[in-house]
Design a protein around this nucleic acid. Structure first.
Lengths: 176, 176
DNA sequence: AGCTTATATTCAATTTTTTGAATACGCAAC
DNA sequence: GTTGCGTATTCAAAAAATTGAATATAAGCT
């Protein structure tokens, strides 16, 4: 149950709406945490009801109104308490790899197509991460310091995406 | 819901008991699928009740009896049907990365310790995968062909573990 | 004799996730 | 004028995962 801690960590770095968070999960931490918008909105409500987050309603013109969430001191305490406990093991589910594992039973054209599509998705994501990394490198102090650790995590994302691309290329060559 | 397909794929390559499967999930596909023993045993029962698997009870001396599961023709059909549908997106949860992301709020010694521990775990896993890879490379035909695609997936595991190790070393250097 | 480890499996309550439906505003394209 | 997209959020049923307890055999250790 550390979705709540992921949310607290991200809002601690920078407050935002549920909608913002959904995008941030998708665009910048997708190599280490997957969360759907329903999950995020539900957890935001729960965190607010527990006073770990505080919401400010922002009335907008031309766009629907939104709620900007910010971590409360209690929220920081909760996050810190969690940080002290040993981290649980990673959990992953990658259906594509099951497909390849069982690929003998599949149509090889279909397999090649899917690997190619995934290759593209990883390439796109790699570029996204690299662009984000550039932005973080060029930040002025004290922002650069603030983003030092998130940036460090991003570097793992970049390495993993590169590993994927390499592997996808080798695999496409090997099965052709 | 592709735990069932992961199980079918793995039992199609080689039949085995629930206990065997738990070990195989843990030792050879943990970089792309996480499953607990409870999940695996429950799904095996379900798959058997749907006649996608067939169980043979094996009476053992010196050890508890066991059930060896084998994929039925219906199971193969089910797996093939699933293989035709586009693979769903990967889902991942890596609590350690949340910790690092929020690391400013944590005790840095504790952080270093945890990263070191994870480094060790990844190093161990890398070795495991590399040993397994050696075994697969040295198989005689037709086994080598049979394991070609599982071996290909293992190569991704090796790349990812290497990326982790590299990253852990760089991160430990950077935060020290 | 009692403790731990490895083998081998089952059940059930609780929590979390997934899937799907719903609502609503404004802009741009066809 | 309606279809689709981007912004923004909520609710709820159903499916799946997690947590924790239980059971049983035999080998090895202290």
């Amino acid at each position: 149950m550390s979705l709540r801690h992921a949310i607290l960590a991200m809002l601690d770095i920078e407050k935002g709406s549920g909608y913002d968070l959904v995008k941030r999960f998708d665009q910048s931490v997708s190599y280490f945490w997957a969360a759907s918008y329903q999950q995020i909105y539900r957890e935001l409500q729960k965190l607010e009801s527990e006073a770990l987050l505080e919401a400010e309603e922002v009335i907008q013109q031309g766009k629907p109104d939104k709620k900007i969430y910010e971590v409360t001191p209690n929220g920081i305490v909760e996050l810190q308490k969690w940080l002290e406990k040993p981290a649980k093991a990673m959990k992953i589910k990658e259906p594509l790899l099951i497909k390849i594992y069982a690929g003998e039973l599949a149509d090889s054209k279909h397999l090649i197509e899917e690997i190619s599509q995934h290759r593209s998705a990883h390439a796109e994501r790699l570029q996204q991460y690299q662009e984000m990394s550039e932005v973080l490198i060029n930040l002025e102090q004290p922002l650069r310091s603030k983003y030092f650790l998130p940036h460090q995590t991003l570097k793992l994302g970049i390495k993993i995406e590169k590993a994927w691309l390499e592997w996808a290329d080798e695999t496409l060559q090997a099965i052709n």
